[in-house]
């Protein structure tokens, strides 16, 4: 099997969380079947668009991995997709939708859209792998990145076995739709204390000298 993987993140590949997730998925695919080959294009780099478009026409196994941008697909990915010529209904298309917000319910609106997308491109929908809580990937050292993305290795095997994510194992990967009330209570107190301190610390290391709730523009006329 040969899989065309498109990284739909607008963030440059080096800092792309989606890119690290794709690496873990590829590892899993190769573990399942060493004969599997892949080719990868990143839409953050417009210079790759022509090749990615040509690969879309040529391939029948397509996996698009993307971050959730304001409840749906990023504008840049939508622009790329709108330039694709429709196919003839033999191509399988699956998605990996990831987000910073941790709960599966946050990704359902985006998933709803992705279900309709392959049909519009003349492809067959083969499921969307959903998971949140990926914001920190870019912020942590390489060995921690590997730890965070490790669960995706198993999902790479699942993808290779099912030629998509249209299966129970992939659906379960999404985790809880909502956190239960006790968990929300715990998280709320973490957000108000440790969370703020960690974000502030990260901001300082990025050269930020303002409070994170700073208002650069006038809030009234």
């Amino acid at each position: 099997m040969h899989v065309l993987i498109i990284n739909g993140s607008p963030r440059v590949q080096k800092y792309s969380n989606t890119d690290k997730i794709i690496s873990a998925l590829k590892e899993g695919m190769e573990q399942y079947d060493p004969g599997i080959t892949t080719e990868l294009y990143s839409i953050s780099d417009r210079k790759q668009w022509d090749d990615a478009r040509e690969a879309f026409v040529r391939n029948d196994e397509i996996l698009i991995a993307l971050p959730l941008f304001v409840e749906c697909i990023p504008g840049l990915l939508l622009e790329f997709l709108s330039t694709l010529p429709p196919k003839d209904g033999h191509t399988r298309m699956s998605f990996v939708l990831q987000s910073g917000f941790a709960e599966a319910s946050q990704l359902r609106c985006g998933e709803k859209y992705l279900k309709t997308l392959p049909g519009r491109l003349g492809c067959i929908y083969k499921g969307t792998l959903i998971k949140g809580d990926n914001f920190s990937i870019r912020l942590v050292p390489d060995d921690m990145k590997k730890k965070i993305t490790a669960p995706y290795v198993q999902m790479g095997k699942v993808y290779a076995e099912h030629k998509g994510f249209d299966c129970e194992e992939a659906r379960k990967f999404a985790g809880p739709e909502y956190f239960n009330a006790p968990m929300r209570l715990i998280l709320r107190s973490i957000f108000a204390t440790f969370g703020r301190i960690m974000f502030r610390k990260t901001a300082r290391s990025w050269g930020c000298d303002k409070p994170l709730n700073y208002r650069p523009y006038p809030a009234s006329r």
């Binding site: 622009e79 974000f199 990025w206």
Partner: peptide, 14 residues
């Protein structure tokens, strides 16, 4: 387009 840099949250707030 948004380039996902997160600078508006962590480098130059807002």
């Amino acid at each position: 387009h948004c380039i996902g840099c997160n600078y508006c949250w962590l480098k130059d707030p807002g």
